[in-house]
């Protein structure tokens, strides 16, 4: 089934969070004003990404961008390598001693990350996730954990409004998720983020954490948003108002209740037997 929409309605971090948590495999394509990008995932890990025309993402170009090949070298190799897959080309370059395997891995990885970080700046664009679609086997794929990518993405978030909307209330508390696979140790956090992490505790509100660390509302929202999306922490709901909280005694309410024969609002919770009867009735409908 479909997983599509517009980036206007989701942040890229939100989508990555979804892919990460649901351990999805497939390819996410995004189109924006004639610009297009793709990211591929295997079991929730980012394995490949590119933006723009295919030839800009040729291995020779990537190695050139990473400073491993000169411009001339890159151009010649790219011309000669027509019809050769990135993987084959990589093997060839390694065998001839031009370059090491770790150079290739690092450069490709950096190219993937650069692409994704650029995507974080797209405020809109149609996206579509094609489940189980993966890059052809000739591409070099490198699995990258999404948690770190998400954290870095939120560091680059500039839109105050999105954060405000996602985290309207700073008087709520956080706790660490007990997801067994939340890998705090694999994530690189900034000093500020570590400070915030050290204050995460069901008794400290986000606002208190911000005060303690001299962070502005924007800064604390950005950090907490990143940690939420990366699945490190979760929100503890604020205590609900008690049911007997001063209810508005508007005449409208009384009228409506009377008209519809509803029980007195302040009546105790319904009995178990009532619920059981409702279940039986609805089953039989």
């Amino acid at each position: 089934m479909a997983l599509k929409g517009n980036l206007r309605d989701f942040s890229t971090t939100q989508l990555l969070n979804l892919i990460n948590l649901a351990r999805k495999t497939g390819t996410l394509s995004i189109q924006n004003n004639g610009n297009s990008a793709q990211m591929s995932f295997r079991e929730g890990k980012l394995i490949y990404a590119f933006m723009g025309p295919e030839e800009d993402n040729h291995l020779a170009q990537i190695l050139h961008n990473a400073g491993k090949l000169s411009e001339d070298q890159a151009r010649i190799i790219q011309a000669r390598a027509k019809g050769t897959s990135d993987k084959q080309l990589g093997h060839m370059l390694i065998q001839r001693g031009h370059i090491t395997q770790s150079d290739i891995i690092q450069s490709v990885r950096q190219n993937v990350l650069d692409t994704v970080y650029k995507l974080f700046t797209w405020a809109e664009g149609l996206f579509r996730f094609e489940a189980n679609a993966l890059p052809s086997p000739g591409h070099i794929t490198i699995p990258i954990d999404l948690e770190s990518v998400i954290m870095e993405g939120s560091r680059r978030l500039k839109e105050w409004e999105i954060l405000q909307e996602e985290l309207p209330n700073l008087d709520i508390c956080l706790r660490f998720t007990d997801r067994p696979d939340a890998r705090l140790q694999n994530i690189n956090l900034t000093v500020e983020e570590w400070r915030v992490v050290s204050f995460v505790n069901p008794r400290n509100s986000i606002r208190q954490i911000a005060r303690a660390n001299n962070l502005s509302d924007f800064e604390i929202r950005r950090i907490v948003y990143g940690m939420l999306q990366a699945g490190l922490v979760e929100i503890i709901r604020p205590p609900r108002p008690t049911p007997q909280a001063p209810a508005r005694q508007s005449s409208t309410r009384q009228e409506i209740l009377q008209e519809q024969g509803i029980d007195d609002p302040q009546s105790p919770a319904v009995k178990r037997s009532v619920v059981v009867r409702l279940i039986d009735r609805i089953r039989g409908l």
């Binding site: 479909a2 599509k4 929409g5 517009n6 206007r8 309605d9 989701f10 209810a247 508005r248 508007s250 409208t252 309410r253 409506i256 209740l257 509803i262 029980d263 007195d264 609002p265 302040q266 009546s267 319904v270 619920v275 409702l278």
Partner: peptide
């Protein structure tokens, strides 16, 4: 204000989402 009225003495509620409209999520 309607919610205030309706939630009194309510058994429970259903939140409906149009699964085809991501712009409403």
């Amino acid at each position: 204000f309607m919610w205030d009225i309706l939630s009194q003495g309510m058994l429970g509620f259903v939140v409906m989402v149009d699964s085809t409209k991501p712009e409403t999520f």
